[in-house]
Design a protein around this nucleic acid. Sequence first.
DNA 1: TAATTAGTTTTACTTTGTAGAATAAATTAC
DNA 2: GTAATTTATTCTACAAAGTAAAACTAATTA
Lengths: 112, 112
Amino acid sequence: MGKSRFLGEFEQFVLLAILRLGEQAYGTTIRQILLDVIQRDVSIGALYTTLTRLEDKGLIRSAMGEATAERGGRAKKYFEITAQGKRALQETRQSLDAMWRDVKLSFVGVKQ
Amino acid sequence: MGKSRFLGEFEQFVLLAILRLGEQAYGTTIRQILLDVIQRDVSIGALYTTLTRLEDKGLIRSAMGEATAERGGRAKKYFEITAQGKRALQETRQSLDAMWRDVKLSFVGVKQ
DNA sequence: TAATTAGTTTTACTTTGTAGAATAAATTAC
DNA sequence: GTAATTTATTCTACAAAGTAAAACTAATTA
């Protein structure tokens, strides 16, 4: 249950990472996607803190996976985005788009 | 002097508001643009806190305007974005775009 | 000179971002 | 069969960013 109306900037990236990972979204893979796609190297602890908070707010849900590791390791906790999470993501994006609109014009001297 | 590498979500909106206001960017007008464009109603105190922090980080600069009020009121403090601020804004945007790319496909059932 | 008006600063607290260490549960080597 | 190794999550603690409300400032006008 979140009283805050907006997505934090890192929360946004985590939600997007989960979306693009689909079935394969869990701690390690989410961290890796962030590293691959936007070169953002966050500690795994930092990531889990955010995941926990997103779940508390109802923007994602999780389910423990089978303990089917090939070689050692404990069970994975898979995440997926909720309808509310998608909505939050879209609203944030729309606001950003609205603010960027026309601004481009004033952006002289900086490559877009 | 900012050690944190990323723009906060509200910081981003404030920078964009300043950009689109051009010469006319000061407390009241920035607040109003946020309200008009994205229906975000933030207290004036909250806004100034963020403006101060953005300036400390070198993302914007300010200059006191003449005390040319038509009817009462003190001098305005005008803000403008620095080159560093533009860069930060663009980098944030590029990261967001990169993360959104392809994700659209998995977005079934939600209107874009 | 007291109201009024338009604007900025201060104070205080909540929420979000972040790392590092601790813990957990499985597999394999001896 | 137990000690290492591996893969993963949880806990703890603190810094940074978001936010409102109240205080303050400096003009103008009645």
